[in-house]
């Protein structure tokens, strides 16, 4: 049986899709058979970030409505061969998703994959509810900012009460905190919430801290999951998070502001 992992946050723009792409790719790089499902029906971003947008023929709604077979809609990644993507539809709305349809897809994928990552849309409407409903584990993506933390708190409450595990009393959804866009310099200046503050409010285990980095935007624009950029500190942080997820003891990095040396100060070096 595959583990179903929802990547969710409540708030939009905090890095759910970036995380889904990076984390899914990271798991696949470690040899895990991984599929990432885009639940953001109507917007469809995951295929862009993973660089497969030109290969989309069918999507999740086609599969649910019986217009295509699951295998026809799955896109195999060309860089990592254990990775696949199930794209969202851009021309339908979220009402096209049904619980039974999603259940069938997840059951079918369970036979062929180790991990099923569900990239949730923002909000707590239908698409987000379906993305988290079947989850065994959850990556809670949070920015060090008050409204993002509040929304993540809300989503944690929903996970505890309205997921399949909660409804069928199968035990808790295992929660992981992933703080993204963390800028230690701004935290030091008091412009961002401290990591400890975020942890104190959400009170779930910390899986990783991904620093703010220009490489993320570059990665998105080129359709390359940032974890494939070995130079990028964000990519390295995602790799650490994947390693921790798979049970390795990896110390947290990138929590302190970078002290620029004279050379970098003169030439305006920036975090890669």
């Amino acid at each position: 049986m595959a583990e179903v992992i929802v990547v969710t946050s409540g708030k939009g723009g905090v890095g759910k899709t970036t995380t889904s792409a990076a984390f899914g790719t990271g798991l696949a790089q470690r040899g895990k058979r991984t599929v990432v499902i885009d639940f953001d029906v109507g917007l469809r971003n995951l295929d862009l970030i993973m660089g497969v947008e030109r290969r989309v023929v069918f999507d999740i709604v086609n599969v649910i409505q019986g217009e295509a077979k699951l295998n026809q809609a799955l896109i195999r990644d060309k860089r990592v061969d254990t990775l696949a993507i199930l794209p969202a539809s851009q021309t339908r709305d979220k009402d096209a998703l049904t619980k039974d349809g999603v259940r069938q897809i997840i059951e079918e994928l369970s036979r062929d994959f180790d991990y099923i990552l569900c990239d949730s849309p923002a909000g707590i409407e239908k698409g987000a509810m379906l993305a988290l409903y079947f989850a065994d584990q959850a990556l809670i993506v949070t920015n060090p900012e008050v409204s993002s933390v509040r929304d993540s708190d809300r989503i944690l409450g929903v996970l505890q009460s309205r997921s399949r595990r909660a409804e069928e009393k199968l035990g808790r959804v295992k929660e992981h905190l992933l703080v993204t866009r963390y800028d230690p310099a701004r935290v030091e200046r008091g412009e961002m919430l401290k990591l400890e503050d975020v942890q104190e409010i959400l009170a779930i285990p910390l899986l990783g801290v991904v620093p703010e980095s220009e490489s993320v935007l570059r990665a998105s624009n080129t359709g390359t999951p940032v974890i494939l950029d070995a130079e990028s500190i964000a990519g390295q942080a995602y790799k650490d998070a994947v390693d921790r997820f798979l049970g390795e003891d990896v110390p947290h990095r990138f929590l302190e502001p970078e002290r620029k040396g004279l050379f970098r100060r003169l030439f305006g070096g920036r975090a890669a």
């Binding site: 509040r150 708190d153 809300r154 944690l156 929903v158 959400l202 009170a203």
Partner: peptide, 8 residues
Amino acid sequence: DQPVRAGQ
């Protein structure tokens, strides 16, 4: 015994 979260 668990945190009471936003919306609960």
